[in-house]
């Protein structure tokens, strides 16, 4: 039972909103010690796993170019493009991105999106721009809500699109695990059975985006923000 101490620390630490980095480190060290490893072995196990997972950080290599483009006005341009489309709303912009992201993921093209490459420089400014277009200046809270939804769309669309592609990691993991247990399954049938969930995800999330549009509209008509023309300043953090 002592092995579960790490889970306890994580749940308590995240709930108390302590620095997640600290919580995770303490939980890892405690779990290692509880399982009978010596202090040096625990630190080494930590270092080894950290080193072996460096590949997840490669996405940060896009920061120089994204930063450079932001400096040259990429976000402002993304907003201006949307401002030229009168029919655009936050929900519709996000629905289009959802469809593109889910379909390309189903074709195995999962690198066509991502929070650093697409959401921050393009999708979020477009979603914000569509709202500004309709309702004028946005409150900081509204702006943050739209951004959170832009990120959520990227996640939901890729999670429930990629499993339709037969060579994706999760399908290979399922096949490999079942093989170890003496069961053979067809990757194509696994991928086929991801379709009902993909359709459900599309339906559920698109309804939520329609509701987001409605709630933004209601919010704007109930209490318009009394600031003159749309300011594209970043809200104070």
């Amino acid at each position: 039972m002592l092995t579960l101490i790490g889970i306890l620390i994580v749940v308590a630490g995240f709930a108390a909103r302590l620095n997640p980095l600290l919580v995770v480190t303490v939980a890892g060290l405690a779990t290692g010690l509880a399982s009978g490893l010596g202090p040096v072995q625990v630190v080494a196990a930590f270092g080894k796993a950290f080193t072996e997972s460096r590949y997840v950080a490669i996405v940060w290599l896009v920061l120089p170019v994204i930063g450079l483009l932001e400096r040259a006005g990429l976000k402002e341009r993304a907003r201006a493009v949307i401002a030229a489309v009168p029919a655009a709303t936050t929900g519709r912009v996000l629905m289009i991105y959802f469809a593109v992201r889910q379909i390309t993921a189903a074709l195995g093209l999962i690198s066509l999106g991502g929070h650093a490459q697409m959401v921050r420089p393009l999708v979020a400014p477009m979603a914000e721009g569509a709202a500004e277009n309709r309702f004028g200046a946005l409150r900081a809270a509204t702006r943050f809500r739209i951004r959170a939804h832009a990120s959520a769309v990227d996640n939901v669309a890729v999670f429930f699109g990629e499993d339709i592609f037969i060579a994706i990691g999760s399908i290979l993991l399922i096949k490999g695990f079942l093989e170890q247990n003496g069961i053979n399954v067809e990757p194509a049938r696994l991928a086929l059975w991801a379709v009902p969930t993909a359709v459900s995800a599309w339906l559920i999330h698109n309804v939520r985006l329609l509701l987001l549009d409605r709630s933004l509209r209601r919010e704007a008509t109930a209490s318009p923000v009394p600031i003159a023309p749309a300011q594209h300043e970043e809200p104070a953090a």
């Binding site: 092995t3 579960l4 790490g6 889970i7 994580v10 997640p20 980095l21 995770v24 480190t25 939980a27 890892g28 779990t31 290692g32 509880a34 399982s35 490893l37 625990v42 196990a45 930590f46 080894k48 796993a49 950290f50 072996e52 997972s53 460096r54 997840v56 950080a57 940060w60």
Partner: peptide
Amino acid sequence: AAVLPQMLAALGALFATAGV
């Protein structure tokens, strides 16, 4: 937060070693 995913991978490895 940039480093958190790697830290969580490390935590997962320790969970696995401990048989959580």
